[in-house]
Simulated scan of single mutants.
Amino acid sequence: MTELRNDWTRGEIEEIYNSPMLDLIYRAATVHREYSDPQEVQVCTLLSVKTGGCPEDCSYCPQAARYHTDVKVQKLMEVDEVLSNAKAAKENGSTRFCMGAAWREVRDNKDFDKVIEMVKGVNQMGMEVCCTLGMITESQAKRLKEAGLYAYNHNLDTSEEAYEDIITTRTYKDRLDTLENVRTAKISVCSGGIIGMGESHLDRVGMLHTLSTLPEHPESVPVNALVAVEGTPLEDQERVPVWDMIRMIATARIIMPKAMVRLSAGRVNMTMEEQALCFLAGANSIFAGDKLLTTPNPEVDADKQMFQVLNLKPRASFKGAAAEKYSMA
């Protein structure tokens, strides 16, 4: 069985990333079969529970207050409305429900109290509940864990070297500190990045190197293709080739064999055949629903058809290595 390693070098990862495409896909598919059922794909739903007005300057994000985009600022949703969305997501086959709030960081106030109630409610439905709320402290992470939070998403976005080209309102260390706080609270870590922001292939390797050399690999690694939004600094970026997505997914699968590798933003522009290659290369999770926070996503019916054609089956909640450690069930 492929060895689990946390001592990958950048050179080793670069060699994997740059290997011939068909060899890379074959190697990743082989590793994938050692640790997972290749027919199983987890269906996740992501809901923006507080939209827009964020003080950060992330160049890709239409929710930043300083950019002029079509995103309308909305206050934090009511608990009942969120739980109604979660129930609908579960009925459509989702086994993981992620709630995103456009905050720089969590503050200990009434809004956080409401999020805690949301987490409790979704957890009681038997779904894996995930949040992405910006930076959190260790005590806030522990509070979320006690409420039933299964996973916390906080993406690195890109390499440490390219980070300042994309974001100046927080540091790379801030990102890593939040991941450490999540891990300390015994919450499953979800962390990946975005490609197509003008970074080099070496930057992509650098981001994967950081993730794969953490003390423990993230249980979940989202791979996003930039969705260029008018009004943001990256509005003129060209769509990233699907082959770059496949390289990222396959490399992530090989160096982090147990992780859920999530085919995330940018999927709306991919054909079923392109998505099938991503699954072959080791992706075993998608986000369903017509919106991914504020960007378009394929419709549920299209995904159901794809699952039928490719003989895929939805992965159950609380399954695998992460579940043994982090499940509240």
Rank of each mutant, 00 (worst) to 15 (best):
T158S: 14
D157T: 11
M197A: 08
L156V: 15
D157M: 06
V182L: 05
I195W: 01
R204A: 09
R183V: 02
L179H: 05
G193I: 02
V205E: 10
I194F: 02
A162Y: 15
Y152Q: 12
D165G: 01
D174P: 05
D165W: 00
T178F: 10
E199P: 13
G192E: 02
I195K: 00
A185P: 04
A185C: 04
D165N: 14
T169L: 04
S159F: 09
A147V: 07
G193V: 01
R183T: 15
G148Y: 08
E180M: 08
L149W: 10
H201M: 14
S200R: 07
D177I: 10
N181Q: 09
E161M: 03
K186W: 00
H201K: 15
Y163H: 14
D174L: 06
E180H: 12
R204G: 05
D165T: 00
V189E: 04
G198I: 11
G198E: 13
T158M: 07
E180I: 00
R170M: 13
Y172N: 05
S188A: 14
G206F: 06
I187F: 03
G148W: 07
V182W: 06
V182P: 08
L179F: 04
V189H: 01
R175E: 12
E146K: 14
I167Y: 02
R183C: 06
R183Y: 10
T158K: 06
G148M: 08
D174H: 13
A185S: 05
G196P: 00
T158C: 13
R204L: 07
Y150C: 10
S159H: 06
E180D: 12
L149R: 11
S188H: 00
Y163Q: 03
A151H: 04
D203L: 06
V205K: 01
D174N: 15
Y163P: 14
G198Q: 09
V182S: 04
I194K: 01
I167N: 01
E180S: 14
L149Q: 10
E199M: 05
T171P: 13
G196T: 02
D174E: 12
S200F: 04
M207A: 10
E146P: 03
L156C: 09
G192I: 02
L208E: 03
K145S: 13
N153V: 07
G196Y: 03
H201D: 15
